[in-house]
Write a protein that binds this DNA or RNA. Structure first.
Length: 880
RNA sequence: GGGCGGGUAGUUCAGUGGGAGAACGCUUGCUUGACACGCAAGAGGUCGGAAGUUCAAUUCUUCUCCCGCCCA
């Protein structure tokens, strides 16, 4: 392809799929096990198998891909292991929805047929999200793709369950759990989201049995639960009530006799100081009930409606309908004292937002204390490090206050609990295979109908995906993984559970570092959600702006751990950047027809030495920032370097040489430096923008099959050339000064401006003398350098750059008034600066205590300012 | 109630114990042999408020106000 045929604007759609296919077909993502090389491994947080890519995934996977591509280029044996999650409730709910549309339901189908339907669903949609991850450019090892319900992961789940069961760390108990009446399953404590809701506090009279005219007033937010009351509690030291402890009350509407008990849990200041106790429908009451051996009366059923224990009148009513009825009935009987407004926190199901019903139920739990202990230790002693560090505290605080984990779910889709119950004697046995018969009586055994919490299997992800419980080579080489990248919203759900699981089953941490990122919010700062309809579809963005732009936008202008608002303007910025890179390369290619790497080259010029120095500075900074997980800063360095230094200056500076206005050897040198720096810049940018960098790199002179297999650019201190940087900035500032004067004095763009540069300093003079070409070319100026100038032309505009007087004679063109105004303003600024600097230099404390180099710097600054002031003030005087 | 994050240019956000930055927007001028998704020049900020530490604070400490999140 002829290079000059490259289109003017970069079109990502034409190249992205092509390169992804090329990479994947050539197995460049595949991590061939190589024990000689240092491993770098990441396991991908598995998205829901039937889900769709959202911005959160896009961010999470972009970060992982950047780290993986970078480490791979650095020579690590880099593995990024992808996979999907079976997502119990979510997936089951989708299939149930489907069935409903067909006019049937899972019960009609039966468990087996239903599960077939879910697998069908999984097969139909399971590749959707992985295809979408490819669109993003994810360089994960698809040969090792896993699924939480595949054979290996399922084996790991069974193994873990049985291990924990045998160790006494899994138990079954009748306990108060969170029940979602909509999802019809239990959920764990962290799956309950609390939110403040307007509500009421109802004050109700509970009369004494021995004296119906005497009563206690209790306060409750949920009057419907009174049907399940078994006691009224007061604080033991509450003198108002303590003498009543032991007496009996008659529960209104029900007529049940219930005792007055004393418990320190009661807050005497809340409500009336008397609390009704409903062990079956409140976690705190449950605990009190256990302490006092009270009965448990369950009055709300699994459908969220009142059951037969609620009494004939209320039975079948929905809990809220019942609440209204109870209030009405109490009022009629004169037992309702008052109703107060009382906003309070209500628990909702994280999946469907239904108000959760606390309920007593026989469920499986993981005993957390013994598991949490080592997990706390691993983070405390630094075997696992959180980035940013502040998440350490959040993690520890949660781990230290952890409660047992309810792991059974009343679902069909998931890992079925590997426990069998004897139908005859009730014996219970945990086993991978169905037992032939009861070990006690030989009776028939049946498996527990419930499945495990989805997070139970994802907790094993870092080792189950590497082959555990088999002792595979992958496991040996890649475990523990290097870093886990995930959102701050699943630290508890997932990160914490992987840590204790890894420590318990592998005896080693699952990862050494946890890189936490924030959430992608909409432009107004709201969480993107389906119900709000404010989500931005990454695939649409990729379609319109390209995956590289999306990726670049997601990592720039953001700090680790902080949320990120999605602004389309920022996307444009990234797209413009991609286009800039594209055009810089297009320009390079238009001037490389005769490029020969081994051609006889002229000496490097100042511009060459300068850009090489700046490039190596960028190499160092980018690498350092990546090491520190400052991905946004690394990207910023590359953006600034590419645009401001490489494009705006270097390319402009070498144009005369490329256009053959100087010796051919000079052209060859310019070509060489341009190719070197541009190619290196593409390599540095490749982890961030994999597609466009590959496309450009392939067009540039190169060796090798793909940019992604290139060695990461190495910082060469030999090429850092501070002298060149210094000299170049004098040239650049001089050019800028002339341009400014031209602009302000309205010198026509085409007109060459005669310019006198007066430099008393010999070094400056020689730098300018050697580089007049640059000034002439970029400032369109005819330059005349002088050591001093006795007679300064009156019809001229003037400025100072680094001690060099820049004089542009403008006979007939100059607007003296304008020049005077400008000089005055500049002098004012200088005055202000001088005041600050001299204030410091006159301060004895500063001179005595500040580091010598700082003092020197301030002195140099003062000198420069004074020089500038003298020149400009003199000029002003002359014009006035 | 406890914890965390944020408050910096008109807007969205970086950043820092020693001369306040970017993008977009704005003003002015440019079809300059890569790019108008561009080039050049420019205007614009008491870095939320108060006190303290320091030679020096936008940056560190304390208090305080506002916004957001998490936990109880």
């Amino acid at each position: 392809m002829s290079n000059t045929e490259l289109p003017k604007t970069y079109n990502p759609r034409e190249v992205e799929d092509k390169w992804y296919q090329y990479w994947e077909e050539n197995k460049y993502f595949h991590a061939r096990l190589d024990k000689k090389r240092q491993p770098f491994s990441i396991v991908m947080p598995p998205p829901n198998v039937t889900g769709q890519l959202h911005m959160g995934h896009a961010l999470d996977n972009t970060l992982q891909d950047i780290l993986t591509r970078w480490r791979r280029m650095q020579g690590y044996n880099a593995l990024w292991l992808p996979g999907t999650d079976h997502a119990g409730i979510a997936t089951q709910a989708k299939v149930e929805e489907q069935l409903q549309k067909e006019g049937t339901n899972k019960y009609e189908l039966g468990r087996e047929k239903f599960l077939e339907r879910v697998w069908d669903w999984k097969h139909q949609y399971g590749s959707r999200i992985t295809t979408q991850l490819r669109k993003l450019g994810s360089s994960c090892d698809w040969d090792r793709e896993r699924f939480t319900m595949d054979e290996g992961c399922s084996k790991a789940v069974q193994e873990v369950f049985i291990n924990l069961y045998k160790a006494g760390l899994i138990y079954r108990d009748n306990y108060i759990v969170n029940w979602c009446p909509h999802c019809r399953t239990t959920i764990s404590d962290i799956e309950v989201e609390h939110s403040e809701k307007p509500g009421h506090l109802y004050h109700i009279k509970y009369p004494f049995k021995d004296n119906p005219h005497q009563y206690l007033v209790i306060a409750t937010t949920r009057p419907e639960t009174m049907l399940g009351d078994v006691a009224v509690a007061v604080h033991p030291e509450d003198h108002r009530y303590s003498h009543m402890v032991g007496r009996t009350l008659i529960l209104p509407l029900v007529g049940r006799e219930i005792p007055v008990i004393a418990d320190a849990y009661v807050d005497p200041a809340y409500g009336s100081g008397c609390v009704k106790i409903t062990p079956a429908h409140d976690p705190n009451d449950f605990e009190i009930g256990r302490r006092h051996q009270l009965p448990q009366v369950q009055v709300i059923g699994k459908d969220g409606c009142m059951n037969e224990q609620a009494g004939e009148k209320y039975r079948g009513m929905d809990r809220y309908q019942c609440r209204r009825q109870i209030v009405k009935d109490l009022e009629e009987q004169g037992l309702l004292v008052k109703i107060e407004d009382n906003p309070h926190s209500v628990g909702h199901c994280y999946r469907c937002d239904t108000v959760v019903e606390p309920m007593i139920s026989k469920q499986w739990f993981v005993k957390m204390k013994p598991l949490a202990e080592p997990a706390i230790q691993a983070v405390k002693d630094g075997r696992i490090r959180f980035i940013p560090q502040r998440f350490t505290k959040i993690y520890l605080n949660w781990m230290e206050n952890i409660r047992d984990w309810c792991i059974s779910r009343q679902l069909w889709w998931g890992h079925r609990i590997p426990v069998y119950y004897c139908q005859q004697c009730g014996e219970m046995a945990a086993s991978k295979e169905p037992p032939a018969g009861c070990p006690q009586c030989g009776g028939k055994m049946e498996q527990d109908p419930d499945v495990l919490d989805t997070w139970f299997s994802s907790a094993l992800w870092p080792f189950s995906t590497l082959g555990w419980p088999e002792q595979t080579e992958d496991l040996e080489h890649f475990y523990p993984t290097s870093v886990l990248v995930t959102g701050r919203d699943i630290i508890f759900f997932w990160v914490a559970r992987m840590i204790f699981s890894g420590l318990h089953h592998m005896k080693e941490v699952p990862f050494k570092e946890v890189f936490i990122h924030g959430l992608v919010l909409d432009a107004q700062g709201r969480k993107m959600s389906k119900s709000l309809g404010n989500g931005v579809d990454p695939l649409e963005v990729i379609e319109s702006h390209g995956a590289d732009s999306l990726r670049f936008m997601l990592v720039t202008g953001n700090t680790p751990g902080n949320d990120l608002r999605f602004h389309f303007e920022r996307l444009d910025k990234s797209r413009n950047f991609a286009n800039k890179l594209w055009n810089a390369s297009r320009f390079a290619l238009m001037n490389l027809d005769d490029y020969d790497e081994n051609a006889d080259r002229g000496e490097l010029t100042l511009a060459d030495r300068w850009i090489l120095s700046r490039y190596h500075n960028a190499v160092k900074e980018v690498t350092d920032f990546l090491e520190r997980y400052e991905l946004g800063e690394a990207a910023r360095v590359l953006y600034d370097f590419s645009w401001s230094e490489l494009c705006d200056w270097y390319i402009e500076l070498i144009k005369p040489r490329l256009y053959g206005k100087t010796a051919p050897r000079d052209r060859a040198a310019a070509q060489h430096v341009l190719v070197t720096v541009l190619r290196g810049t593409m390599e540095l940018l490749h982890p961030f923008m994999p597609f466009i960098t590959e496309e450009i790199w392939q067009h540039l002179p190169h060796k090798g099959e793909s940019i992604m297999l290139q060695a990461w650019p190495e910082y060469d201190p030999e090429l850092r050339d501070l002298e060149a940087e210094n000299a170049m900035s004098l040239v650049m500032e001089t050019i800028t000064e002339i341009r400014r004067i031209r602009g302000e004095m309205k010198v026509p763009p085409g007109k060459v401006a005669e310019t006198i540069l007066v430099a008393a300093d010999e070094n400056s003079r020689s730098i300018l003398a050697e580089n007049t070409g640059y000034v002439q070319e970029l400032a369109k100026a005819e330059v005349n350098i002088k050591e001093s100038l006795a007679e300064k032309p009156e019809q001229a505009a003037m400025g100072v750059a680094r001690g060099v007087e820049v004089i542009v004679p403008l006979k007939g063109l100059i607007d003296i008034d304008k020049e005077i105004a400008r000089l005055k303003k500049e002098l004012q600024n200088i005055e202000k600066e001088l005041q600050r600097v001299q204030g410091k230099l006159n301060n004895q404390g500063f001179l005595a205590k500040a580091p010598a180099e700082i003092v020197e710097k301030e002195k140099a600054k003062e000198k420069e300012l004074l020089g500038k002031q003298t020149v400009l003030a003199g000029r002003l005087k002359m014009l006035q």
